[in-house]
Simulated scan of single mutants.
Amino acid sequence: MSASTEQHTKISMKLGRIGYLNVLPIYEPIESGDPDVLGDLDFEIVSGPPSYLNDRMAAGELPISSMSSVEYGRRHEQYLLIPDLGIGSRGPVQSVLLLSRKPIKELNGGGILVSAQTHTSATLLRMLLADHYGLDSLRYTTGNATAILESGERPQAILCIGDEALTLRRHPDYPVRLDLGEAWREWTGLPFIFGLWGVSRKTFQEQPAQLRAAARALLASKRAGVAKLPSLLPAVSQTTGMTVDELTDYFAGLVYDLGPEELDGLRAFYAALARHGIIDSAPALEFIDI
């Protein structure tokens, strides 16, 4: 094989993608084949809700992927994080919502339906309601909120995330809405990071150069996607039913960087998980060196 041919050999790799609108700026340049972002990489996108990607990462089936923040907390020894890449909010997030038929403080003793798609948001909700609202007698069940509502059932309260939350947030039977990003900010004064991007430690030991290249591509895609986001929104509006103004407001509330304040918020979340006995101890944040 000549040096020229070898130079242009594509590096194929599976890449996990949250199947929600909120990560559009991170993945759009990759998915549209931007050569300045991809270089010699050829990604096979594996898409699904956070819980699905968590399971695939834990099973060692994805070398690089987005994951729930709680997944890193539970199995951090299996992962290295990609620096300066996350999905969260500094206040209202709009797509992680507790929808209730009665005031939040009147929920004690009742039940909450939790989307099966979430791990981090479900854990955050339990801690928020216990510590911030003093609600310690709640029943949690897991299910498909959209399907249950379409069947005519009306649970007392529903935790929904992602695109489902954007669809259900103005449901007339659920006049009370608790935005978990906003509630966390009120509780701690910090941003909340719902998701992270990481690589398999095992795969990184075997293919460090390839995974560093993939991590750099994701960061380049984030920068390019955020820059071109306004030009993408008219087409997104056609497929989501949200107006361009609504989409602009939604994306303005999201953060994709892991700056000092975001990292403090992440550490505070892990400290709370440890305090509640959900994890043994708060993990160190270990990043891939790119």
Rank of each mutant, 00 (worst) to 15 (best):
D173L: 12
D173T: 09
D173H: 13
D173P: 05
Y174A: 12
Y174H: 08
Y174K: 05
P175R: 13
P175I: 13
V176C: 06
V176E: 12
V176S: 05
R177P: 03
R177A: 15
R177E: 14
L178F: 07
L178H: 06
L178R: 08
D179Q: 09
D179L: 05
L180D: 04
L180H: 01
L180V: 11
G181L: 03
G181C: 04
E182I: 04
E182P: 01
E182A: 15
E182G: 03
E182N: 07
A183R: 05
A183C: 14
W184T: 02
W184F: 15
W184Y: 15
W184V: 08
R185E: 14
R185P: 00
R185M: 13
E186G: 08
E186D: 12
E186Y: 10
T188K: 15
T188R: 15
T188F: 10
G189Q: 10
G189S: 07
G189I: 10
L190V: 04
P191F: 12
F192G: 07
I193C: 02
I193G: 00
I193K: 01
I193D: 01
F194H: 12
F194L: 06
F194D: 07
F194V: 09
F194P: 02
G195M: 07
G195C: 11
L196S: 05
L196D: 07
L196W: 03
L196Y: 01
L196A: 06
W197Y: 15
W197H: 14
G198Q: 06
G198R: 04
G198I: 09
V199N: 00
V199F: 12
S200F: 09
S200T: 09
R201M: 00
R201K: 10
K202E: 15
F204T: 01
F204C: 01
F204R: 02
Q205C: 00
Q205G: 14
E206M: 11
E206L: 08
E206A: 15
E206H: 06
E206G: 00
Q207D: 04
Q207W: 07
P208F: 01
A209C: 02
Q210W: 08
L211V: 12
L211G: 01
R212W: 02
R212Q: 10
A213V: 02
A213T: 11
A213I: 03
A214S: 13
A215Q: 03
A215D: 04
A217G: 11
A217N: 06
A217Q: 02
A217K: 03
A217C: 13
L218F: 11
L218H: 08
L218P: 10
L218Y: 07
L219Q: 15
L219R: 15
L219F: 04
